[in-house]
Amino acid sequence: MTRKIALIWLVCLCGIAIFGAMLAPYDPMTNHENAVAQAPSLTHFLGTDGLGRDVFSRLLAGAGRTLGISAFSTLLAIGIGGTMGIIAPLLGKFGDSSLVLVMNTLLAFPPLLMALILLTLLGRSDMALIVAVGISQVGMTAQVIRGVTRSILGEDYILGARACGARWWHIAWVHIRRGIAPTLGAQLGVVFCYCLFNSAGLNFLGVGVGIGVPEWGAMLAEGRSIFRTAPHVAIFTGLLLMSVVIAVNRIIDD
């Protein structure tokens, strides 16, 4: 039952992500000069933000960018990190240690520093943002997946497969995949949550991309500075983000 609701909600979100900007009642960038930081009303369904922009419209218009960046950076993190984590234990002691070396080097770079470097080198673009946010989660994902893969390699069925002369890539593809599924799924959920908030974290450092372009994480952060006078901005954005987190994690669990 809850699964069905989660699924429907996710489909809705995808719809909003694609068509949200068209559904918005107002231009998400327009300042309504006479309605700054206003509470929800009939004209502004979810109120306005600190610069007088319609919150409802900004939430709708920001869905695509928010979910897109988080989804792509999650894919990047899980793709690279997961692959590294699965392959490492299969490569023997030296190969394993070498890949761990790469994972740890990535982990040693504080995410903010990594983002600053990447955004300077790649230029300020959404692409660079996806890479910066995604890469910062690669090290952790790789370590977690490597841990599980190692323990699976000790399972009887892997022994059996080895005994039958299966090649390492066959073992990786057929057997390990099944064993790491729960961890990989959980990790996917965790990384998605972190990515959802991290691109806004870069704005905090001043290296964010697209100042003022509607994005939920950034709206949540902006809502904090006007929390006393206009708490609705943070509350509505927060509830929306929470619903995404709940829905995504609910789906992954199945």
Binding site: P111, M140, Q143, R146, V148, S151
Partner: peptide, 23 residues
Amino acid sequence: RVALLPVLPIISTQFGFLLGGAV
């Protein structure tokens, strides 16, 4: 015993994050 094994690397990587990202 088995289920918590994957938690170990999370703990260690998070610890690293806490040091660098305590900002």
